[in-house]
Amino acid sequence: MRVIVIIIAAAVGFGAGYFFTLNQIPRLIMAGTMERTAGLAGGWNQFIHPGLRDETSTRVVRPSPDLVYSACVIDLSDGPIRITSPMPDRYWSLSFFDANTDVPDIAQREEFDDVAEVIIATRAQAESNDFDGVRTIISPTSRGVALTRMFTPDRSEYPRLRETIQTAATCGPLNPAP
């Protein structure tokens, strides 16, 4: 009897530890990434442009050296967020990652003409606002990361792309506090 009780306790403990950890890994890694990125950007709801990826890029695993990234760590607690960006003459996308690492939606270069405008909102915010037909991404969580990718196979192009595309992009509250 004693041995059986111990074996059952061990089996339950193993399963609990295994599945708890499995489910917490994405949330914890994403939470850490969001906090670090927001710190580097100088706050939430602000773009950071980390530059071309190389051996010193160790915040996110398996970065692509052929892409130029811009990240805005989103907090929807005080309302929807509006992102704008001039459109480059090459692959560009804006993907939104929720706090559980899922991707509910991606805005693509082909959806826009010269400038992209995208609103990120919770479902409740979207249902209670009229965004005048602006492209909207619904976030299942109140926090997440908006990430733009731009194909840059020629690294010498980066200074021009940074100036004309990245630094001209905006990320901030749809309705800024007065």
């Binding site: 074996i7 306790a9 061990a10 339950v12 403990g13 399963g15 609990a16 530890g17 295994y18 599945f19």
Partner: peptide
């Protein structure tokens, strides 16, 4: 046993 196995489960994950 529960605690030790729990840690082992977490490490396995």
């Amino acid at each position: 046993a529960f605690v030790v196995a729990g840690v082992a489960g977490a490490a396995t994950a």
